[in-house]
Design a protein around this nucleic acid. Structure first.
Lengths: 117, 117
DNA sequence: TTGACATATTCCCATATAGGCATGTAATGT
DNA sequence: ACATTACATGCCTATATGGGAATATGTCAA
């Protein structure tokens, strides 16, 4: 078998860097295709194809306005990604934690004399 | 051009459902390949190939122990996924966020189990 | 209607898969 | 040395892809 389709789920759809850029770009407000083309420097058919994939997995919504079609990111669609990656959160080396540990080690080793590495 | 290689980044490597299962399975402790094969019901060459991809993108570490090779997830490698998806967080509904927070608190206080269906 | 604009789709192609199967390699025990 | 265990890799194939170019569809304006 080949790789799963890009339209099979959010993980596959978001694996494409251009699509991730599009999703971020369309996060705050709806925008026509031409603006995506201009701002991201892709050619129009490519953008349309990426938007098709994103639409198929429910990551963008679309609305027609005259000749334009206005796309916007449906942020809720990203949740599965965020929730899955959150499973790993408690294993991350947290900066604050490491700072605290170092501080404690320094306090422990530095107590007897004056600064001993 | 074809799709980007699965080894090109975390997003592509984690797009495969089996690899995501493996990553979760190897999160708590290091385990030999045979155990992944048994628990996840995949055949051995498939697991080895998935582990190869995960290793190439730095999502697992490996250590030899006699005839066995012990793999474990490198949780830090998941961060880019989590950070990117966090860009969308402020557009999510608060209700679900609270549910998620409560689930996280429960997971934190409860003892982590090794069974992940 | 005709024409111009905006977006979508189709066709072609090089490339990278994931699965199944067979084989290769490394470490151990006898 | 040999057999066994544990894992890795090679080969094959069907399939899906993303880019480029060309073309189709859809909408408005004059």
């Amino acid at each position: 078998m080949a790789r799963a389709a890009t339209t099979s789920d959010v993980f596959n759809a978001a694996a494409e860097p251009r699509r991730r850029e599009i999703l971020v770009f369309l996060l705050d407000s709806e925008r026509p295709v031409s603006e995506i083309v201009d701002k991201l420097g892709l050619d129009q058919p490519s953008v349309s194809k990426h938007l098709r994939v994103l639409r198929d997995v429910g990551l963008v919504r679309v609305r027609r306005n005259g000749r334009h079609k206005l796309y916007q990111t449906r942020a809720d669609g990203i949740k599965p990604l965020h929730e899955w990656s959150s499973l790993f959160e408690r294993y991350w080396s947290h900066q604050l934690l490491r700072v605290k540990e170092r501080a404690e080690n320094m306090a422990r080793t530095a107590k007897p004399s004056t600064g001993k590495p």
